[in-house]
Computed example of a mutant assay.
Amino acid sequence: MVENALVAEDIEAAGQLVSFLDDHGLAVRGALWLYDSDAERWRFVIAFKEARKDITSFYLDVAKATSKAGTQNLLDLSRVDIVDPDRSIFAALKGVIGVEGNNRVRFSRNRINGVYLEDAMIYRLPA
């Protein structure tokens, strides 16, 4: 299924996920929707402030936390990629743009530090 449109429902659900994780002790350092034109789909990418050797443990903690969300409209975790903030798209964007709190910035068709971003919706990115 082609997911080349980022719809309002996904934008809101992702924002609620970021807030929910912050509120439940999983401090988000960076978060953005990233369009992958090769796969013709959007992926929500998150990096946490806490450093861990095993990124997989974050998936488990996020799944445990969101299982208690009840009726909140959170983004489905099958659409989420958790990455190391120092070895990912966040490292390339560091110092270029800062987005804090629950703001959103659209970033399209730009090359930053050698990385081409076809399209991105940035929720959080330290300056």
Score class of each variant (00 low, 15 high):
residue 36 D to N: 14
residue 37 S to H: 15
residue 37 S to K: 13
residue 38 D to L: 14
residue 41 R to T: 15
residue 42 W to C: 09
residue 44 F to M: 06
residue 45 V to G: 04
residue 47 A to L: 06
residue 47 A to I: 01
residue 49 K to F: 00
residue 51 A to F: 01
residue 52 R to V: 14
residue 53 K to A: 13
residue 54 D to I: 15
residue 54 D to F: 01
residue 55 I to D: 12
residue 55 I to Y: 00
residue 56 T to Y: 03
residue 57 S to E: 09
residue 57 S to Y: 01
residue 59 Y to C: 10
residue 59 Y to P: 08
residue 63 A to Y: 02
residue 63 A to L: 11
residue 64 K to W: 02
residue 65 A to T: 12
residue 65 A to F: 04
residue 66 T to R: 14
residue 67 S to G: 10
residue 67 S to Q: 13
residue 71 T to M: 05
residue 75 L to K: 08
residue 76 D to Q: 09
residue 76 D to G: 11
residue 78 S to K: 11
residue 78 S to Y: 02
residue 80 V to G: 07
residue 80 V to K: 10
residue 81 D to S: 14
residue 83 V to L: 06
residue 83 V to K: 10
residue 85 P to K: 10
residue 85 P to I: 15
residue 86 D to S: 05
residue 86 D to M: 11
residue 87 R to P: 01
residue 88 S to A: 09
residue 89 I to C: 06
residue 92 A to Q: 13
residue 92 A to P: 07
residue 95 G to H: 12
residue 97 I to F: 00
residue 99 V to W: 01
residue 99 V to A: 06
residue 101 G to H: 10
residue 102 N to R: 14
residue 104 R to F: 01
residue 105 V to N: 01
residue 107 F to K: 05
residue 114 G to V: 07
residue 114 G to P: 00
residue 117 L to S: 04
residue 117 L to G: 09
